[in-house]
Write a protein that binds this DNA or RNA. Structure first.
Length: 499
RNA sequence: GGCGGCAUGGCCAAGAGGCUAAGGCGGCGGUCUGCAAAACCGCUAUUCACCGGUUCGAGUCCGGUUGCCGCCUCCA
């Protein structure tokens, strides 16, 4: 039984989809005007984890994430970089998709672009005007909040004239509105701005209407889940509800899910504070993207995550433990005799599922994985794990369909390393410790750690997460050429001018 | 100013009133090892920001105080 917190009711509720076996999920996606920062990515990651958890529960999931490619920022950005709006947004959309892939975020079912759904938006706006929920003024169309009595139910925020005036919305708005709270569904084109034809003259859609139109287009008038960062609760999601339900006359969203923001070193992330990170920034510092993924999911989604470089280091160590464990289990010979592990694996699986089902408690689920690691590790050391180790590997693979952090490449060593290891074994046989240690040091310098176990020596990477050279795709950023070799921090430490 | 959220060991972080307060990282001691490494064991929170209250019983519920964060304005 899957339970999830619903912002509308402010409590955890048992989830069942409207249509048996199929979950419809709409997640607010990026506005493609800049590189995604780690805060953006955390929200997208939680959307990914939700989808993965639902799929593991046996549901088919139709998840849609919009790409906002027309608004004030994209228009201004295209102007600044001397590109067309289409070229400009395509460039940043590519960066967005690259980052998702780097973080092992599975592709959504659909990624609709706002500019490709202008017709559907105009349909909704026309319906709202016809039904008396919206009005035209000077070529723009506004939603009449007073026509929708339930406004404010999601956020608890009901702006009144006093609030609006205090924050200058009246002054800053060049239009004369009947009600200061009303928001734009359609904006009349300004000079030189990209525009589309409409019954009210050339213009472009307001931000809120895009989600309504595209959600209805792909998922229907009532969707099971809608996810977005907490900052979107008001006014974005509040406005979505108002315009959607006013247009369709039926419930728009059954479950509202809002991941909290992350903060950096205890403070809100902002460019002016110098604590603003993109994924690329972290990769250039030599961190493994999987460590970033791990760190972003260490705190429950409804709690703020304090993102620190020290935390990234902790994640790196935790992954090293996990990966080395998985390798050691995988290295057990097929025909080895061993003890029964089914009870331990079953306990881990039970606790793992309980975590996922309880409002997506990934930290709790992850604890189940580590408890199994601690339970099986001593058996490995004593060579008491046999063919039953397969159960452990199956569990890890199963858990990883949600977590997405366990799968990794161990890589291989070349013949020269093999030869050195053999030579070292021979030296040890002769009790030539000096030569044996010399070889071990030599391999260590190459980033390869040798461990002597009861069943013979084994090798592993010395610095999981920083030893692999990681080159950001050259077309993504011509300055990003950071290469980290064998656990040695990159010397390329300059800020990229393009960031 | 209005509204909302959070405060758990050195760090990160679970914990829908009641077994000895998960898990990860780090530190110290030990076992194992030719020495290491890894792994494991023990120690590192008689206590959950502070003050009251409800209850047989509260980290978990209520009120207050302090601190931090967020929304109210573009924002994941």
């Amino acid at each position: 039984m899957f339970r999830i917190h619903n912002t509308m009711t402010r409590r955890k509720e048992e989830f069942q989809p409207l249509h048996e076996g199929l979950v419809t999920l709409y997640s607010c996606g990026p506005t493609v005007y800049d590189f995604p920062h780690i805060g953006n990515l955390r929200t997208f990651l939680w959307s990914d984890l939700l989808v993965r958890a639902l799929r593991r529960r046996g549901f088919e999931v139709h998840n849609v994430m919009n790409v906002t490619d027309v608004d004030d920022k994209t228009i201004a950005g295209a102007e600044r970089e001397g590109m067309s709006l289409g070229e400009y947004t395509a460039k940043y959309a590519d960066y967005f998709f690259e980052d998702l892939e780097t973080l092992r975020i599975q592709p959504a079912w659909k990624y609709p672009r706002a500019t490709e759904h202008i017709g559907q938006m105009l349909d909704v706006i026309r319906t709202l005007v016809d039904k008396g929920h919206a009005y035209e003024q000077d070529g723009s169309v506004y939603f009449d909040i007073s026509s929708y009595p339930n406004y404010g139910r999601l956020s608890g925020v009901v702006p009144d004239e006093h609030t609006s005036r205090e924050f200058g919305r009246l002054d800053s708005d060049e239009y004369e509105l009947e009600d200061a709270r009303d928001f734009a569904l359609w904006k009349a084109a300004g000079p030189g701005e990209p525009s589309w034809d409409s019954p009210w003259g050339p213009g472009r859609p307001g931000w809120h209407i895009e989600c309504t139109a595209m959600a209805i287009e792909y998922l229907g008038e009532t969707i099971d889940m809608h996810l977005g960062g907490v900052d979107l609760v008001f006014p974005h999601h509040e406005n979505e509800i108002a315009q959607s339900e006013a247009a369709t006359g039926t419930q728009f969203v059954r479950f509202w899910i809002h991941p909290e923001h992350l903060i950096v070193e205890g403070e809100k992330m902002s460019k002016s504070k110098g604590n603003f990170y993109t994924l690329r920034d972290l990769l250039e510092r030599g961190y493994d993207p999987v460590a970033v993924r791990h760190l972003l999911m260490t705190a429950h989604y409804r709690k703020q995550l304090n993102f620190t470089l020290d935390g990234l280091e902790q994640s790196r160590q935790a992954l090293a433990r996990l990966w080395d464990f998985a390798d050691r289990v995988a290295e057990v010979p097929e025909d080895a005799e061993g003890v029964d592990l089914s009870a331990q694996v079953h306990a881990a699986l039970t606790k793992f599922d309980a975590g996922l089902d309880d409002d997506l408690n990934i930290p709790g689920a992850m604890a189940a994985v580590f408890e199994l690691v601690r339970g099986v590790n001593p058996l490995l050391s004593e060579a008491r794990v046999g063919a039953e180790g397969r159960q452990v590997l199956d569990f890890l693979a199963d858990a990883d369909t949600v977590l997405g952090i366990i799968d990794h490449e161990k890589g291989s060593v070349d013949a020269e390393v093999d030869a050195l290891m053999a030579e070292r074994e021979a030296a040890r046989g002769d009790k030539d410790w000096a030569r044996a240690d010399e070889i071990r040091d030599e391999l260590l310098a190459q980033g390869i750690v040798i461990e002597d176990t009861p069943t013979g020596p084994r090798w592993r990477r010395g610095e999981w997460g920083v030893s692999e050279p990681h080159v950001v795709r050259s077309d993504a950023c011509s300055h990003a050429s950071a290469v980290v070799v064998a656990g040695v921090q990159a010397t390329h430490g300059q800020e990229c001018p393009c960031h």
